[in-house]
Nucleic acid binder design. Structure first.
Length: 169
DNA sequence: CCCATGATTGTTCGG
DNA sequence: CCGAACAATCATGGG
């Protein structure tokens, strides 16, 4: 007992590589704290659902995410790094394997997701931290990739000019 | 045959 | 501060 409470100090899987006392970025630092905090509130708010709209006004059944097949911007941002998976998704990867082994009858991910979510809640912070850490690193990489992408875009981005090269492949 | 949807939580940015 | 939206995955269904 009495372990998670004091763990607060440790709660920084995502940031602070250790050392580096220099101020990297005031903005980033601020976001970092907010980041973790927001997650807590998020879970609460999401579950509570909005107070308004008691009637059936569910914004579902309408092209929810458009990212997948929306080529409109997809092509232009084809190289644009997408959002890196969250810690939960990484956990899913591991969990999926185990889940499929134990439940080979399961077919869809929907079932896994539910099982995963349930287990995820039962997991302790320390265990989750491991995934948080991964996700965080990915985000760092994502951030870097994004910067590069921007640079590349500014640099060249002239694909339509050339044509014979990418023709046959 | 192909596209969209469904479910899970986390992260992220904008107003 | 709150909210809305998007991240992977894959089976299944609708047109």
């Amino acid at each position: 007992m009495a372990k998670k409470a004091s763990k607060s100090k440790n709660s920084r899987p995502s940031s602070a590589p250790s050392g580096s006392s220099k101020a990297v970025s005031t903005v980033s630092d601020r976001r970092m704290v907010l980041r973790i905090r927001s997650s807590e509130r998020m879970s609460r708010s999401r579950r509570l659902n909005v107070v308004s709209v008691d009637k059936e006004k569910k914004p579902k059944a309408v092209m929810k995410r458009k990212g997948r097949s929306n080529k409109k911007s997809a092509k232009l941002d084809a190289k644009m790094p997408k959002k890196p998976p969250t810690a939960f998704f990484y956990f899913l990867e591991d969990f999926r394997k185990d889940f499929q082994v134990q439940n080979p009858d399961v077919k869809s991910m929907r079932d896994i997701g539910k099982a995963c979510g349930e287990k995820w809640k039962t997991m302790t912070y320390e265990e989750k931290v491991k995934y948080y850490d991964i996700a965080t690193e990915k985000r760092a990489d994502f951030d870097r990739a994004m910067a590069e992408y921007m640079k590349r875009k500014e640099s060249g981005e002239d694909e339509d000019t050339e044509t014979d090269t990418e023709f046959d492949e």
